[in-house]
């Protein structure tokens, strides 16, 4: 009996190791490739002399820093706008009842489910009318709009946890509604807001569907669009491409590690009935 259990446990660990190889291995392989010279890319071995020359090349020969910079500007501004607006609305929907508050809250969910392509067509038409195609501002607008429902529902989960008694006590002590927001809610909501901000950042950092149409020149082109344009048929090799890819995913990996305790909340916002 004991022996059988030991065997079982051994098999379980073996299975998990195989799983880790499948899920982490490809990224490790990509990283190793990024350290190889072009001639060794398709040798299935460790690099003979690992070096950062691909990283240097990608930064010097292509405007990769411009794309990373565009990506950062778009993502950070989306965070500020999206979380700022969304937090106010989310708090209002959690604490106050007013006409259409339910309708608005739930229609946000429906909008979140929409396929991006259904929005991309009118975005393109309207943005070209108002000169917003190929601008960072256009991308910020579309990303913010797409992330607002997400922010509202994620923060709803956090705001709900704050006991209403705290607010009532503060009000009895003579605190105004804005005072409650500033002195009670804000300090308690900071962790939730931080987590939500990180998710919004990753969402817009990864956003490709809109950007591929709305940002095709270097003024606004973000990193994923640039990567998609660097595919081998355009004469760029895997040695350079893997280095560019690594540069692009490092922020995602770090941020994922930071928010790993909240991944479930962030990935199912609104889908879990609140």
């Amino acid at each position: 009996m004991r022996r059988r259990e030991k065997w079982q446990l051994g098999l379980v660990y073996l299975g998990l190791i195989v799983a880790v190889i499948f899920f982490v291995g490809p990224l490790v392989y990509l990283f190793i490739t990024s350290l190889k010279p072009a001639v060794e890319v398709f040798d299935f071995s460790l690099p003979s002399s690992p070096s950062l020359r691909n990283y240097r090349a990608i930064v010097n020969e292509y405007p990769v820093l411009v794309y990373l910079c565009n990506s950062s500007i778009v993502s950070l501004t989306t965070c500020v706008l999206g979380v700022g607006l969304g937090a106010l609305a989310s708090y209002a929907f959690t604490r106050y009842r007013f006409r259409f508050s339910h309708t608005m809250h739930y229609s946000a969910l429906v909008l979140r489910m929409l396929p991006g392509m259904a929005l991309l067509i009118p975005f393109y038409l309207l943005f070209s009318k108002y000169g917003l195609v190929d601008t960072k501002f256009g991308l910020i607008l579309s990303n913010t709009a797409f992330n607002l429902p997400f922010v509202m529902w994620t923060l709803h989960g956090f705001f709900r946890e704050i006991p209403i008694e705290l607010e009532e006590a503060a009000k009895i002590d003579g605190c105004s509604r804005l005072g409650v927001l500033k002195h009670i809610i804000w300090p308690l909501a900071i962790p939730g807001i931080a987590v939500t901000t990180i998710f919004v950042f990753i969402n817009s950092w990864n956003e490709f569907d809109f950007a591929v149409v709305l940002a095709s020149t270097d003024v606004a082109k973000t990193m994923p669009v640039a990567l998609a344009g660097m595919m081998p048929e355009y004469g760029i090799n895997w040695d350079h491409l893997s280095a560019a890819g690594m540069l692009y995913i490092v922020p995602t990996l770090i941020l994922t590690f930071i928010v790993q305790r909240h991944l479930v909340q962030g990935l199912t916002a609104g889908a879990v009935k609140g």
């Binding site: 899920f23 990224l27 990864n206 998609a228 995913i249 994922t256």
Partner: peptide
């Protein structure tokens, strides 16, 4: 095991293409 969870689809795509 959660490493790929927030990865951009574009990266998953080009990596597997490789």
């Amino acid at each position: 095991l959660v490493t790929p969870i927030m990865m951009a689809p574009i990266v998953a795509g080009f990596m597997w293409r490789f």
